[in-house]
Design a protein around this nucleic acid. Structure first.
Lengths: 236, 236
DNA sequence: TGGGCAAGGATCGTATGCAATCCAGTAGCT
DNA sequence: AGCTACTGGATTGCATACGATCCTTGCCCA
C-alpha cells in the first residue's frame, strides 16, 4: 500500500494493539465484519495471538472512533449506527470535505496528481474485477480516495477526522445502502481529480458536495433496521 | 456544571477511566498541567486510587485526543504542540465552527439563548474575580462557550471534534499566547450570541471566524519554544 | 580529564488470575 | 400453562506480577 506510507504512523506506543486495530478497522470498512457482530476480547486475542489486554486496547481505540460499541459487562460489537447518526456522519463530511478540497486545490502539484491518477486506476481495477474480494477492495479504495484528499491537504487533524468519517460511512452504507457497493462514485472521483488538476476551487468543492449528496441519496434512512440483529453474530 | 449534563455521557464502559480522563483533561485545559508535564501511569493510578490498568486506559484516551504524547517505554507527557500543529488546530476550527454556527442559527430557540446568556454570565463572573483559580475557571468557561455552540447544533460527531479542538487550543494558547488569558474573547462571545438570537447566519459565521482569527493573532507561532522543557515537570 | 562502559533504578509492555456481572436455561410455585 | 426465582456458564472489569526497555550514574581506563 503506497497510501499507508503516507500516513503519519506517529504513535509508536501500543504498536501491537494499533496493528490489530488497523486490521479490524479494515475488516469493518470492507464489510467482512458487519454491524452488530460481536468482538469478544478473548476471541480477538486468540485470533491475533495476543492476550486480552492488547485485544481490549484495540477495541477501545475502535470504540473511540465510533466503529465499535461496547456495553458494560456485555462486550464489544461492531457499531450499528442509527439513521440519525448516519445523517450526522454525512453532515460532518459535507462540512469538512469542501474545506479539505479547497486546501488541496491550493497545494496540489503534478506529483500529487499522479497519486490521484494511480488511485483512480486502482479503483477501476477493482471495479472491473469479479468476486467478493474485489468488491471489498473496491469499497476500501473508494474510501481511500477521500483520505488521499485529506493527505494532500496536509492537515493531520482533519485527516484523522476524515479517517473516522470515512470508516463510519462505510458502516452506514453497509446498513442503509440501496445499491450494493458504492460503485456509483468512480466517475465522480475522476471529475474531482480533473477539477483539482485545473485548480478550480469552486468546481472542486461543488463536485465534492454533489458526490457526498449522491452517496447519501443512495441510503434508506427512513425505516429503522430491525433491532434484533442478535442472529447476525452467530458466526462466532 | 449544567453544561456537563448536556454531554451525551454515552459510553458507560470504562466509566472509571473516563472519569479520570475528564479530570486530567480539565486540568490540562485549565493549565494546571502544563505542556511537557510527565504523567506517569503509577502516579496517576495512586493519585486517583486505581491500578495502572485504569490509569493507562485514561492516558490512552488522552493520547487519542492529541492532548498527551506517549513515548514507548518512556511514559506519557502533556502534549507540546508544534507551531505547525497549532496552525492546523486553528485551521480546523475555522473550517468546522462556522458550519456548527450555521446549524445552531437554524435550530436556536429561546431556551437555548437563555443557556448562552447564562454561559456569558459565568464567563463574566470569572473574569471579574481575582486569583489563579478564577483565571482557570475563565479559561474553561471560554472553551465551554464554543462547546455549547456545538451542543446546540446537535451533531454528536462534530461536538466530539470540537471538544478535542477546544482542548488543544487551550494547550496551544498556554504555549504560544502573548497575553495571559483569553480575556479578549468575552465581548466577542456576546456579539455572537446576539447574532445567533437574531438568526443572522452570515453575521454569526463572520463573527465566529473573526473571533478565531483574533485568538490566533494573539499567538506567537514563529519562534519555537525552548525544547528544554524538562525543567518544567520538576513539580512531580 | 574525558570518554566509554556497565550496573542500577525506574517505567512501561504484556500476560494472567480472580472477582463481579450478565444472560440463559431450568426448576418450582401459583 | 404461565410466571418467577435460581443456578450455571460465559464474559468482562480490574489488579497484579513479571519481563523488557530506556535512562542515569558511577566506575574504569586511556
Amino acid at each position: 500500500m503506497t497510501l499507508a506510507a503516507e500516513f503519519p504512523a506517529d504513535r509508536l506506543p501500543d504498536d501491537r494493539a494499533q496493528a490489530i486495530r488497523d486490521r479490524l478497522r479494515d475488516a469493518i470498512i470492507e464489510r467482512r465484519l458487519t454491524p452488530g457482530a460481536k468482538l469478544s476480547e478473548a476471541e480477538v486475542g486468540t485470533l491475533f495471538d495476543v492476550s486480552r489486554t492488547i485485544a481490549r486496547s484495540a477495541l477501545q481505540m475502535l470504540t473511540f472512533e465510533g466503529l465499535v460499541r461496547t456495553e458494560r459487562n456485555r462486550g464489544a460489537f461492531v457499531a450499528n449506527p442509527s439513521p440519525e447518526e448516519a445523517r450526522q456522519v454525512f453532515a460532518s463530511r459535507r462540512l469538512i470535505e469542501p474545506g479539505i478540497a479547497t486546501t488541496a486545490c491550493e497545494t496540489i502539484d503534478a506529483f500529487r496528481i499522479d497519486e490521484f491518477r494511480a488511485q483512480l486506476d486502482r479503483e477501476a481495477l477493482h471495479i472491473a474485477a469479479r468476486g467478493p474480494d474485489a468488491r471489498r477492495a473496491e469499497i476500501k479504495a473508494s474510501g481511500d480516495f477521500h483520505l488521499l484528499l485529506a493527505i494532500v491537504a496536509g492537515n493531520q487533524i482533519l485527516l484523522r477526522f476524515m479517517e473516522e468519517l470515512v470508516a463510519r460511512s462505510s458502516l452506514v452504507i453497509a446498513l442503509y445502502g440501496r445499491s450494493g457497493a458504492s460503485a456509483c462514485g468512480h466517475s465522480e472521483h475522476r471529475e474531482i481529480v480533473d477539477a483539482l488538476e485545473a485548480r478550480d476551487v469552486t468546481k472542486t468543492t461543488v463536485l465534492i458536495v454533489k458526490h457526498i449528496d449522491h452517496i447519501e441519496e443512495d441510503l434508506e434512512l427512513e425505516a429503522r433496521p430491525t433491532q434484533t440483529l442478535r442472529e447476525i453474530f452467530s458466526n462466532s
